[in-house]
Nucleic acid binder design. Structure first.
Lengths: 116, 116
DNA sequence: GTCATACGCAACCAACGGTTGCAGGAGGTT
DNA sequence: AACCTCCTGCAACCGTTGGTTGCGTATGAC
């Protein structure tokens, strides 16, 4: 269960999936099993160059890998790395969730003690 | 099915919790049940002014609320809104997770069919 | 009243997401 | 071969944002 208590949140990885455009790109790449800067840009409201930059970011953190295929460069999602990113989302989410639950419980106890 | 696969993610809310510094601040506020720009900045590697700006952002999306208390302004986390943010993390995470699982299943089926 | 402290405002800087423009390379057509 | 098309990569530029420093002001404590 690899339990490191201190948040092992990789800020680079997080900020990579933090951008809405990049999230959309990952979504498209997953849905279609791959794509190029041009093909992605045709399905998004930004230019090819913007997409290319984002692909560079995603590539640098390993969320995506692109290899030359003829005259185009085809990108694919790295499943393992995306799984790590998803785990981080869950990690942060559950940490906050746990705190919220504890706070709520304490509040209820105080409330109960006061009405007795 | 290959169309709009992006969930109704509130981009403002998401980008508010997307910043590492703001996440850290929320964490501290939750842990200590509140705080001021100055008190937070003393536990972080940024200046009070930077913290104040972030508090402004968090306030604007409703994740945090600050009321004057004497000569200082005390901020507290809005539990309900943070719960909404946590729900979004879970939502995006589970969407990707589902896709990854489906891809893996298909890959295994292909593998199995090939070895028969 | 004075002093320390917490705040808010403004100017400034670097990084980032986005754009336009242009040069070059791989494939298909004639 | 020459030509045309399309996809890529690089550079310059712009607005926004996270961060800083500096300064004026108000409020609580002595």
């Amino acid at each position: 269960m690899t339990s490191t208590l201190v948040e092992p949140v990789d800020d680079d990885l997080w900020s990579a999936i933090g951008d809405p455009t990049r999230r959309r790109m990952l979504d498209l790449l997953l849905a279609e099993g791959g794509g190029t800067a041009t093909s992605l840009s045709r399905q998004m409201p930004v230019t090819r160059q913007a997409v290319a930059k984002h692909l560079g970011v995603l590539d640098r953190v390993g969320l995506v890998r692109g290899d030359p295929a003829g005259r185009e460069r085809r990108y694919r999602v790295d499943d393992a790395q995306l799984a790590r990113a998803v785990a981080q989302l869950a990690s942060v989410g559950s940490a906050w969730d746990a705190r919220l639950r504890r706070i709520k419980r304490i509040a209820e106890e105080i409330q109960r003690a006061r009405t007795e």
